[in-house]
């Protein structure tokens, strides 16, 4: 595939493009690399006065401490419960709603579609007090169910938007053909819509997981028992005080980030077009 002849200004532009991307990549990825690097360095290197691009020696002591001494694993379990719950709840609710909006006509349809996005207008800080009161009354503090509900509420508008756009782009005829061939409404949904929308469904599920995993504010407010802390809360705790153990902290951070990265890589591998196609049709 040979490129057509380009003018000089375009060649310069291309060079600029690559340089820019290189810088961008550096800016976005390097800090994280540094985090990982720091977590693997022994304390004398961390607190030393030299800068090393590649760690001179590697140690896993920080990881050992992170995983055994501070209850990080427990918080990972807590986060996992909430995140999986959020993933399931958000995906199901968003999928059903997106299907309803794009395949059915009913009064208020367009309003619903737009209104959902506008929930981002609400300051979440306003909710922390009533939420605390509400969940305390139901005995749901320190309970992943509370977090699941809250995180789903946070993730839903965006996930709904993505699924809605993607479903819009699936031709109605695919479902109509199924109906003509004998499928019920649900049959068409099950045999045609869901498999066709799979890239977006996977993208949305993972997005919901990531949003839940990283959520700080509500997790902080609604868990009073330190054994029930989720991961962001736990890790920030380690930041308190005068003597911050940066080795431990960075190691804990890396542990916290790994599941997200793993899922993320999985998602990308499974699809590239999920989010792309979904947000393309605005």
């Amino acid at each position: 595939m040979s490129a057509p002849p380009v003018s000089r200004s375009r060649r310069i532009a291309n060079a600029v493009r690559y340089v820019y991307l290189a810088i961008v990549a550096l800016v976005f990825i390097l800090p994280f690399y540094w985090l990982v690097k720091t977590s693997l360095q022994p304390n004398d290197v961390i607190y030393g006065s030299d800068l090393h691009l590649v760690p001179p020696t590697i140690t896993f002591t920080h990881y050992q401490s992170a995983l055994t001494e501070v209850g990080l694993v427990g918080s990972i379990v807590n986060s996992l419960l909430a995140a999986v719950g959020t993933m399931v709840l958000t995906t199901v609710v968003a999928l059903l709603a997106a299907y309803g909006i794009t395949r059915y006509v009913f009064p208020g349809r367009r309003t619903v579609a737009r209104l959902v996005l506008l929930t981002y207008m609400f300051p979440n800080t306003a909710l922390i007090v009533p939420m605390y009161g509400m969940f305390a009354a139901y005995g749901l503090l320190n309970n992943p169910v509370a977090l699941t509900l809250l995180h789903s509420m946070l993730a839903l508008p965006f996930c709904l938007w993505i699924l809605q756009s993607y479903l819009e782009s699936i031709p109605r005829e695919l479902e109509e053909a199924a109906k003509v061939e004998g499928a019920t409404e649900f049959g068409a949904f099950r045999h045609v819509t869901v498999p066709q929308a799979m890239p977006a469904i996977v993208a949305v599920a993972i997005l919901a997981f990531i949003i839940s995993w990283g959520e700080y504010m509500f997790a902080y407010i609604l868990t009073t028992n330190s054994a029930k802390f989720t991961v962001p809360v736990k890790v920030t705790q380690l930041l308190g005080g005068y003597q911050v153990d940066w080795g431990l902290l960075t190691a804990a951070s890396v542990v916290v980030v790994l599941p997200v990265l793993a899922l993320f890589w999985l998602m990308v591998k499974y699809l590239g077009k999920g989010i792309a196609k979904g947000t393309g049709a605005i």
């Binding site: 540094w34 995993w213 991961v231 962001p232 890790v235 930041l239 951070s253 916290v256």
Partner: peptide
């Protein structure tokens, strides 16, 4: 997670 970003 934003917590990690903060730390970072």
């Amino acid at each position: 997670p934003t917590a990690v970003t903060g730390i970072l």
